[in-house]
Every structure is written in C-alpha cells, then in structure tokens.
Simulated assay, not measured.
Amino acid sequence: MEKRFAPQAHRLYLWMGVVLIVTYLIGFFPMAEFLPPPSPGWSAERLSTWLVEHRLGTQLACVTMILGATLCGPWGAALTIWTRRTESRFPLLHTTQVISLGCGVCLIVLVNIVWAAAAFRAGETSPQVTQALWDMGWFLFIFAVPPFIAWFVSLALGILWNPPEHQHFPRWSAYLTLALCLNWVTDVVIIFFKGGQWTYSGFTGMWLIFGTFSLWVYVMTYLGFKAVARQERICRQENADGVYHAAAEETHHTARIPVG
C-alpha cells in the first residue's frame, strides 16, 4: 500500500470532468447555436452564409470548447490511475489507456481548431473549402472514435480484472463503459450519409453519442469521488499518516536540514 495519497489532487481532476461537459454544452447551444447544427446535406454556399452570420458565436464556442476539451486529459487520468494495480509490474492496460486518452484529447482539441478555421475564412474563401473544413471538424468529432474505444475497453478490463483488494469501481461501471463502446461503433457510418438520422447532425449519428458520453462522464466522476473517499478510509485505517499532506512533508524535510 502506498503511504502517500493526495485526495485533493484527485478530487480537483475529477471536477474537471464536470467542467468539460458544462463548457461543451455552453459552446454547443447558446454560443454556436447547434440546435441543430448545419446539415451535411446543405450546399457549400448555404453553409458559408450560415457561418458568416454565426461567425462570432462559432468562434467564441470554439474558444470555450477547446478549453473544456483540454480538461479531458487530467479527468481521464483521474480514472485511469485506479486500474494501475490490475497488472502489477507489466501495466499493458494502463499504458494503453494513457496512450489512447492522449490521442483522444488531441482529436477533440483539433475539432475546435478546424471549426475555428472554417469560421475564420467563411465568406472570404471558396464555399467548397469552407465546407470541407467544416466536414473535417465533424469527422474528427464523431468519426474518429477508435482511440476512445481503445481507452474505454482498456479501462473496463482494468476494472473487471482489478484484484478485489484494489477494486474501487463497481463491476457494472465496466459493463456500462463497454456498452458505450458498442454505441460508438455505429458512428463510423456517418461517412455514407448526407441526410437522415445517421449523419453527423442526426440523432443516431451525433446526439445519441453526445448524450450517452455526457451521462457516462457524470457517472464515472461520481464513482471516482467514491473511490477517493474509500481510499482515504483505507489510509486512515492502515496508518494515521497514510494521507499525504504537502505541508507536513515540507515540515519533515525542513526538520532534517542540519543547523550551522
């Protein structure tokens, strides 16, 4: 059992998951006015005109959402760390989670960069170029799901295979995560449709995954807080000094400095 545990840092990073969803909701709805977003069935001219009319809102939304997207990294790390002991000296699942999470964060950051670029030149460049950039942003947002699936599967297996003494997340949360992966597999079909519910602006193509992912973030954040509280209790039971406090450690090192 590790003697140092910083619950404050864990709770801070877990709260970033809540901020992530809130910032994306603010960016999506009141700022970008994606109610619904422009359809891939629109002509290039119509899309370019829409972006010109919504330029400021889209730009503000991209600023807001790119800040929120960055928080996915520390929040995901706050979950990943709890499956580290599943594999002892050979943490294959843990390493896969870290790599896949990093790829996922890069993707959702790039989404907002591409959308911002499309809005930046809308009305000044070719409508076809604007439309291509816009489509690319949505493809990064929805179509590029394999890194997230790799992260979720590794996280779910880490929970399921965790030794009982290190089991901080209930097994049903792993099955919930795997079910979300099955839902995400269907998103690759958006490349075949420009109209209907399977497009990147349709219910099945976008809204279903957006809603289920948001719900999953809140569920896992809640379970993360419970895991932190459980670890605190374990630390207190095993050793009164098990919970690490930076101030106490600093005092300890100061006391060891020789005088004179």
Rank of each mutant, 00 (worst) to 15 (best):
A144S: 10
V259M: 11
G68L: 00
M136A: 14
F5R: 00
H252E: 07
I191M: 04
S173V: 02
P30N: 12
L101M: 05
G73E: 10
I99Q: 07
Y244W: 13
P30S: 10
Q59R: 13
H245E: 05
M220D: 06
N112Y: 08
L155E: 01
H10L: 11
V52F: 13
T95V: 11
L133Y: 00
P91M: 02
T254A: 15
Q197T: 15
V52M: 15
S43I: 09
P36H: 08
L56W: 11
Q131F: 14
T177S: 12
A255F: 14
P170D: 09
G68Y: 00
I81A: 13
W172Y: 09
A179F: 01
T86C: 13
L140I: 02
R233S: 03
A116P: 05
T130N: 09
T212Y: 06
I142K: 04
L71F: 02
W42G: 05
A132E: 10
T212L: 10
L180M: 13
R55F: 10
A248Q: 15
G76M: 07
I190L: 13
Q97E: 04
V19H: 00
T177M: 03
G195N: 14
V243H: 03
P164R: 01
F34E: 05
V217F: 00
V259P: 13
E250C: 05
C106Q: 08
L133C: 04
E165D: 12
R84D: 01
C103R: 13
Q59C: 10
V219L: 12
L60N: 14
N239H: 11
M31F: 13
F210G: 11
I26M: 05
F90H: 14
P170N: 01
F213P: 07
F203E: 11
F152G: 07
L56E: 08
V105T: 03
L71H: 06
V19Y: 03
P147R: 01
D135Y: 09
T49D: 15
G57P: 00
N183A: 01
P40E: 12
P91Q: 01
F28G: 12
N183S: 07
R46K: 08
W198H: 11
Q97I: 00
G137T: 05
Y24C: 06
Y13W: 07
A6S: 15
I257K: 10
V111R: 00
I66T: 04
A119H: 08
G224L: 08
I21A: 04
I209N: 14
I234T: 07
L110C: 08
L157Y: 08
R11C: 03
A116N: 07
T212A: 08
E33F: 04
V188W: 15
H253E: 14
